[in-house]
Design a binder for these strands. Structure first.
Lengths: 101, 101
DNA sequence: TTGACATATCGTGATATCACGATATATTTA
DNA sequence: TAAATATATCGTGATATCACGATATGTCAA
């Protein structure tokens, strides 16, 4: 049985899987959902996620460590924003799945 | 600061996160990639994933347990297929990300 | 410089995931 | 029925993730 399938390259699958795992947490999906709609400081993100600030912080750090977010400090606040160009497409896809439920 | 954002419902985020986590493994992404292109028995899937059959089996079971796949036996073989309608859209999105790299 | 505020890190125990070898089940063929 | 084939499950140690409280860092205002 020959293999005529058009398969994604292995290395790419590893990247993609890592990205999906980083997003595989409700709080982190919420964060990305929020940052799709603007740039916000940790405190506001934490509030919108209904999380203590230090937990929002950890999720933000993880997403940033995976290259999905960037941050910049302004005064005492640190603002986070979407960094990975794959995210908008992915979140749109997820929103579409939500709307078709 | 009022919250005028259009956020996805919490319960949906939990579903989506669970789905993403199930997909957050290179072998499981490979499996879904394969099943997007046909219906195959465990043995062939294992070969294409370069995994021992019993490991492919476990990944298939996990995906099925999350409702992402279905299976049906025919003779000694068990054929798996895509069950969740969100998968094609998601995989297309991932393929698009790959092609734009 | 002190205190307050905003964010970040650390240490921890609890739980989940992982890969692997061993074993079990189901189905067909001899 | 016995053996072979194809899948599935179990037990395990190793590693990762999680939530939480405690503590640390960076910045501004008094």
């Amino acid at each position: 049985m020959e293999n005529t399938l058009d398969l994604l390259p292995r290395e790419f699958l590893e990247d993609a899987a890592e990205c999906l795992r980083a997003l595989g947490h409700p709080a982190r999906l919420r964060i990305v959902d929020i940052l799709m709609q603007g740039v916000f400081p940790v405190g506001e993100i934490a509030e919108m996620c209904d999380l203590p600030p230090h937990q929002a912080c950890e999720h933000l750090r993880l997403l940033k460590a995976h290259g999905l977010l960037n941050s910049r400090r302004r005064g005492r606040s640190v603002f986070y924003e979407i960094a990975d160009p794959r995210l908008p497409r992915l979140i749109d896809c997820i929103r579409a799945a939500c709307n078709s439920e």
